[in-house]
Simulated assay, not measured.
Amino acid sequence: MTKQKRTVFYLSDRTGITAETLGHSLLTQFDGIEWKKINVPFLDNMAKARTLVERINHAAECDGYRPLVFSTLLKADILEVIRQANCRVYDFFETFISSIEQELQQPSARMAGRSHGLQQPLSYFKRIAAINYALGHDDGVNPKNFTDADIILVGVSRAGKTPTCLYLALQYGIAAANYPLTQEDMLANQLPKVLEPVRNKLFGLTLSAAQLHFIREERRPHSQYASLAQCQREIQWQESLFQLFHIPYLDTTHISIEEISAIILDRSGLKRQLYG
């Protein structure tokens, strides 16, 4: 069955992150469509708007369907130009701002860039510090500073610890370190000594042996490290270790980094720092 091909535009006066995030969330609910996604940030003058109208009309002609346009534009005159194109416009601010103004009985500021700007400088710099911490304490580096961590992810090699730490830091300002459980740890069958003083900060990541085998094969094809039997041994051992030392853990086989991070925050009770 041939997929329907449609074009979607994400428009903004600034970065376009909000329009893309909200629009993408909505479109994930519709199957069987192949989307061509076009981001148009910093759409802040009439010349750019008129040029964009031509692009939208061209996409409509090529696809045989009018494009969808998700907008967080604040300038009414620019948005009005876009509405003249052969497209269907979904304006997030129009949908929500007027209703919120009525409820709060005050006008909104209608200033571009506030959601991803420096309106909350303390929160922003905490996230920068958290990113630096995650980078400086990746893969068991600088364990003497683990007491400064908000959380320490543990798991065997290639279990997803590093990307999760970086996501927690970037999105939520969480100072996340990670420690790899090694073959030597498995032979000792004990929690690594360096982790004993910070046991209350530990959170384990696990996954299916088949998934770990697939990931490791990409890194070191046909090696003992990547063999299915080795992956099975390591996963079985680490899950036994988590249970023995009462370390909370999560099977990440079928969930995204975003979901992993949200679950970790929910289970650990850590406070998100994104909005101050």
Rank of each mutant, 00 (worst) to 15 (best):
G269H: 09
N178S: 05
V40H: 05
Y90K: 03
N86E: 12
E61I: 13
D150Y: 14
L195P: 01
F214E: 10
K126N: 12
L195G: 00
I131P: 03
L27I: 12
Q84I: 06
V89E: 02
T252R: 03
K193Y: 11
Y167D: 01
Q230K: 03
K3D: 04
V53C: 09
F203G: 00
L79W: 00
Q120E: 15
S115F: 13
V53G: 01
K126Y: 07
L274R: 12
I174A: 00
E103H: 15
T18P: 04
D77T: 14
H24Y: 12
F30D: 01
Q236H: 10
T51C: 10
A226E: 01
V69A: 04
E103I: 15
A112E: 10
N200E: 15
T51K: 15
Q102C: 00
D31Q: 15
P121D: 07
S123P: 04
L207R: 05
Q106Y: 11
Q243H: 14
E94Y: 12
T95Y: 09
W237N: 00
L244Q: 15
Q120R: 15
E80I: 06
Q102W: 03
T253M: 07
Y167W: 15
L52G: 01
L168W: 12
T51I: 08
H24E: 11
V69T: 08
C62A: 10
A209T: 02
L274D: 08
A177D: 03
A134V: 06
R233S: 01
E218Y: 11
I128M: 13
T253C: 03
E80K: 14
W237G: 00
L241K: 00
L52F: 13
T2K: 14
A177I: 10
L73V: 08
R55E: 13
T72E: 09
A49R: 05
S115E: 09
N45G: 00
Q183H: 11
A226T: 02
L195Q: 03
R50T: 09
Q119C: 04
F125Y: 13
L228E: 10
F9K: 04
C165S: 15
A262I: 06
I151Y: 07
S25V: 06
R83D: 08
Y275V: 06
A60Q: 10
R199P: 00
S240P: 00
L22F: 12
L79G: 06
L274V: 07
A176D: 03
S157N: 05
I97S: 06
N145M: 11
H246D: 14
K75V: 13
F203I: 04
I257T: 08
V53T: 10
E61V: 13
F96Y: 14
N86V: 08
G160T: 08
L228Y: 15
L52M: 07
L270Q: 05
L205T: 08
H246C: 05
T18R: 08
S227W: 03
N45M: 02
H58C: 05
P143W: 08
E101W: 10
F42K: 06
L122R: 14
D77Q: 13
Y10I: 04
T95R: 08
R216N: 01
A112P: 07
